[in-house]
Structure formats: structure tokens, C-alpha cells
Design a protein around this nucleic acid. Structure first.
Ligand SMILES: [Zn+2]
Ligand SMILES: [Zn+2]
Ligand SMILES: [Zn+2]
Ligand SMILES: [Zn+2]
Lengths: 140, 140
DNA sequence: GATGGTTTTGACAATCATTATCAATAACAC
DNA sequence: GTGTTATTGATAATGATTGTCAAAACCATC
């Protein structure tokens, strides 16, 4: 079962690359359609799933259970600092946490420890006194 | 709009208390029904939502986007070490992680930082060579 | 360039968790 | 007890994700 290259997969990869922050499969599909692509929704789901499992994309569950994806720039294992207002995402290393997680697991007799570590907050821009009434757009 | 006490809410709280590890709204509803309670599904969802937002219960999103709940024994903010096989959960404090999260956020100009930090693994019991063919039950 | 076995696609149906409805019911202050 | 009002629950609605499967696209080979 050899993988084949299709413009659809390439389109998804590219769309994801040009997207700032995390985006849902639905949103990415809309974006592609908006830019004229006739790609199907199911295909976007499949492509994103593949990218995620091959490590080319990061994925996480939004608080309301939606799966979000993001082009992954750092090769190895890493985590994210995400602006909950504009979606801006920073890839971060968490050496301390890696060690801590491993330690706490061992300490309790757990093996094969994996972990979920994400930090959400307001980026510098979004922090500027919301007093200015205007707030940055949410998800492009 | 004053909150009222109903046997339904109490039932949910109790069911959650007697449950080891995290459980979904659907599963908790089934469990209640199984034990003879005629409580409605929507009510279970509402009760769990309330418990979670009042801090009496912890909640997290399972990898497949399901919301899971657990009676919270520790009052303050804390994290979890969860057995991905049997659901056994250990509440853990992580002073280091708190500091790290706060630091990394500030370092990047982020404010109002919150974080999601959970460790998944196999507990000591579940680690015993799966060679014994038999494995502990999943979710009660 | 044509051919053929396979993989991939996509329109649409099917799932499945969660939320919205809204009339009937139960809490509780008086 | 009575009235006001929050709560319940059967059911419909929503919305994301997955399954289906014939048609289309890939690509190694002729
Ligand atoms: Zn922002
Ligand atoms: Zn890590
Ligand atoms: Zn276990
Ligand atoms: Zn914490």
C-alpha cells in the first residue's frame, strides 16, 4: 500500500503552512474553497489526519472538543503557547516539564508515560487594554 | 436566579464520587440507569457541567474529543496522572510546572496564562507483562 | 502514450456527543 | 399551602467526524 501524491494533499499541506496558528478541518476546508479549490471535506479530514500521524502537523483538542491542526515547524517533540484570542501560536520546548512528567510517572509506578502540555493566554497584542473597544479578529 | 437542590444533582455528584478515574457524561448516565435511576441524559450533562465550572469536578477532553469528568478531591488547582488502560487517576501538584508555565508565558509577552498539563501512562498493575493475556477492564 | 492494478477522492449518508426546546414538574420562600 | 421560578427530561436539532463506494487519479510498466 504505497502512498500517492495528489494535488489535494499538497493543497492541504500548503494551506496549513500559510495559516497562522491552529485551525480546524472545517475551517481549512472553507478557506480552500474560498480560494477556489474544489477539494472535498472528507479529503481535508483525511489529509490532516495523515499529516498529524506522520508528525508533519501538530494537533490538539480545542476546549469544545474540536480537533485543531497546525503546520509543525520544529521537528522533534515540543509544546505550544497559544493566544486564546487571536490564535497566535509559539512552539516551545519544555525540558523541565519533560523531566518532571517522566519523574512523576515513575514515582507512581507508571510506565510508557506520555503527556499533554499546552499553555493558553493572551498574546502581547491581544493584551493591550481591550479598552480600545476593537479586538483582533478571531480565526482568519 | 438561585440554585436549587435536586436529587438529580445529588445523584450525579454521588455517582461521580464513587467512580474511579474519569468518566464521560454518557457513561455516567448509563451507570445511573443501570443502578435504577431514571435520571435524564440532558440532566447529567447539565449537572456535570455545573460541577466542573464550580470546581467540584475536573474535566478534560479525551483524545477523541469526548469530555471526561472526575470528582475532584483536592480543592485547588492541580493536575493528573492517568492510566490509559484502566482509568486509574492520581491527582498531583506540580509547583515546578506552575512556575514554568507562568515563566514561559511571560517570556513571550503572554498574559492571563492558563495551562493544560496531564500525564498519561500505564499504572503499575497495567504494566505487568500483558503477556498474561488477561488485561484489567476498561472503564467500569 | 496507452494500459491496468490500486489508491484516493468526494458526494452523501450515517454516527455520535452535545445542546436547544419547551411544556410539565418540583423547590422553596413566604 | 401557594405562587413564583429554576429544573427536568423526552425529543429534536446541531455539528463535527467517519463510513460508503463508484468514479477518477496515480504511477509503474508496456
Ligand atoms: Zn493574540
Ligand atoms: Zn513534552
Ligand atoms: Zn491501570
Ligand atoms: Zn497547573
Amino acid at each position: 500500500m504505497m502512498k500517492r501524491n495528489t494535488w489535494q494533499r499538497e493543497a492541504v499541506r500548503e494551506a496549513l503552512d500559510t495559516t497562522e496558528g491552529f485551525i480546524s478541518a472545517q475551517a481549512l476546508h472553507s478557506a480552500l474553497h474560498a480560494s477556489g479549490s474544489p477539494i472535498g471535506l472528507a479529503t481535508v479530514y483525511r489529509a490532516l489526519g495523515d499529516l498529524a500521524s506522520s508528525g508533519e502537523a501538530d494537533s490538539l483538542q480545542s476546549p469544545d472538543g474540536e480537533a485543531l491542526y497546525r503546520a509543525c515547524s520544529t521537528a522533534g517533540h515540543h509544546h505550544h503557547l497559544i493566544c486564546r484570542n487571536c490564535g497566535l501560536t509559539v512552539e516551545i520546548e519544555a525540558t523541565e516539564v519533560e523531566a518532571w512528567a517522566k519523574g512523576i510517572a515513575a514515582e507512581h509506578g507508571f510506565t510508557e508515560a506520555a503527556h499533554v502540555v499546552d499553555v493558553f493566554g493572551l498574546c502581547a497584542d491581544c493584551t493591550r487594554p481591550a479598552a480600545t473597544t476593537e479586538s483582533p479578529d478571531r480565526a482568519g
